[in-house]
């Protein structure tokens, strides 16, 4: 069973930094919010898909994007063992998305973003093969590695490794039935 959790970043900001603030600006603010999110994640049941929701944030600057998204995802990426927490980012206005993309590039990270219609998009840095495999998973739903190979051809590409890379980067979920799928918001 996968648990589904949503973290409203605006509420975290008001609770941890200042009741009056609605802007995610400055590094100290971002660091405080990230620590609060990390504490919340520590107590969550696993495996889980956690939606980081920026919908009610009035402003997100580059420094806060780095402190919250960059450092949070980087730390998770470095953690040992099989991924137990998957992230979806929601509520990003175009400028916030630009800031987050810039951050992800710096860390050589990729992340999943939910658009207003609920579609999942891949942002950040990922090599071409992994990106194409991810799009097959997105298009077809739960698939076997062989399905990806059949779809994309190129038998010389080690698709199992590509899928492992996508899984370790938390961009797809390995299911108990051996298939892989995108993390779902709920």
């Amino acid at each position: 069973m996968t648990y589904h959790i949503a973290i409203d970043v605006s509420s975290v900001l008001r609770r941890t930094v200042c009741e009056l603030y609605s802007n995610l600006v400055t590094r100290p603010t971002g660091a405080t919010v990230r620590r609060a999110i990390e504490e919340a994640l520590d107590g969550l049941p696993e495996p889980n898909v956690t939606v980081i929701d920026f919908s009610h944030v009035t402003l997100l600057d580059f420094s806060c994007a780095d402190e919250i998204v960059g450092k949070l995802l980087d730390a998770q990426q470095r953690a040992d063992g099989r991924p137990r927490t998957y992230f979806l980012i929601r509520g990003l206005h175009e400028p916030y998305l630009e800031a987050i993309e810039a951050v992800l590039e710096r860390y050589d990270l990729a992340a999943l973003v939910l658009d207003p219609t609920g579609n999942v998009h891949l942002v950040g840095t990922l090599d071409d093969g992994a990106r194409r495999a991810w799009h097959v998973v997105r298009q077809r739903g739960a698939v076997q590695v062989q399905d990806i190979e059949a779809e994309l051809g190129e038998p010389s590409v080690p698709w199992e490794e590509v899928v492992s890379q996508l899984s370790s980067r938390r961009l797809i979920v390995r299911r108990d039935d051996g298939r892989v799928a995108l993390p779902q918001a709920s």
Binding site: N23, V25, T26, L59, L60, D61, S63, H93, P95
Partner: peptide, 20 residues
């Protein structure tokens, strides 16, 4: 219309230059 957000982001970053 998105310029307002980008402008505020710009202002925030240049001000943080002082703080940091």
């Amino acid at each position: 219309p998105m310029a307002t957000m980008r402008f505020a982001m710009t202002l925030s970053e240049v001000c943080q230059n002082i703080v940091e």
